[in-house]
């Protein structure tokens, strides 16, 4: 192995998650011949404590990547190397263990919280599923209080309430607390702000940023809203038709887009912005 290759290997090993050549197609209903390619060989890497933004138009496949990483879907081919191991080749048991350090927050704060559970039960659910502190309900409760405090929700006020009594912004914080309770290393955030009112979006991102700084969490932030990535993401990947067409810092991409798709995307945004 050459020195270069060794160096490259070393660099790869620093990554928390590597996605290599991910492909995914969906069968089109009623057709055996034609398939829709959603992901066409996507590779990306996330370092510990890094916030990576995934932007693109709807239908570009950005949510699919997040869902595959979180284990909600499987890929047709490609690898997910998480801390040096291929997630998709793990046994169900190993995978379950791994997923306790990969969590997800969802787009819809109304739907992703079960209406029949109290906030305490909701936030504790990952512990129940992962069978953590199974015997010690006091410890569980303590963990829930901790997680709620981390997202600036007062445990005493919120633990016994139900999701329908909360505003959209508060619910999304509960979602964040639920993702945080297992102390994950990576959180996949699938358009977490798109259902929130504009004035609350920046607040949530600020909170996510603080959480990441305090506890060393990496984010994969899936969004169609390029403006939000400034000041939040360390690195951006622009996705078009299942392929990564451009990478760079948010500043680079918004100021000097290189790829024609990105250029068109930015100029449309600027036009909206200039109104």
């Amino acid at each position: 192995m050459s020195a270069n290759a060794k160096a490259a290997e070393h660099m790869w090993q620093e990554d928390l998650l590597q996605v290599r050549a991910l492909r995914k197609t969906y069968a089109i209903k009623g057709s055996n011949k034609y398939k829709m390619t959603v992901l066409d060989g996507v590779s990306l890497s996330i370092k510990p404590n890094e916030t990576v933004g995934l932007v693109g138009a709807s239908g570009a496949g950005k949510s699919t990547i997040g869902r595959i990483i979180a284990g909600l879907e499987t890929s047709d081919s490609g690898q997910l190397i998480y801390q040096g191991k291929d997630l998709q080749r793990m046994s169900a048991k190993e995978r379950k263990q791994a997923t306790s350090s990969i969590q997800m927050i969802f787009q819809d704060p109304y739907e992703s919280l079960s209406p029949r559970m109290t906030i305490e039960q909701l936030v504790a659910e990952p512990l129940v599923i992962q069978k953590l502190h199974a015997k010690d309900s006091e410890q569980r409760r303590h963990a829930v209080r901790d997680a709620l405090t981390e997202v600036s929700l007062s445990p005493d006020r919120y633990m016994q309430r139900y999701p329908h009594e909360l505003s959209g912004g508060e619910r999304q914080r509960v979602g964040l607390a639920r993702a945080f309770i297992t102390r994950p290393k990576l959180i996949v955030a699938d358009e977490p702000t798109s259902m929130l009112d504009t004035s609350l979006r920046l607040d949530l991102l600020q909170l996510m940023k603080e959480l990441s700084e305090r506890h060393g969490i990496a984010y994969l932030f899936v969004t169609h809203d390029l403006a939000l990535t400034r000041g939040f993401c360390d690195r951006l990947l622009v996705l078009d038709q299942g392929k990564v067409v451009e990478t760079g810092t948010p500043e680079e991409i918004t100021e000097q887009p290189q790829h024609p798709f990105t250029q068109g995307f930015i100029s449309a945004l600027l036009e909206l912005d200039s109104f």
Partner: peptide, 12 residues
């Protein structure tokens, strides 16, 4: 539904 997906992503 979101709640089911959420549980699934937690490894349920």
């Amino acid at each position: 539904r979101g709640a089911v997906l959420a549980a699934q992503s937690m490894g349920a």
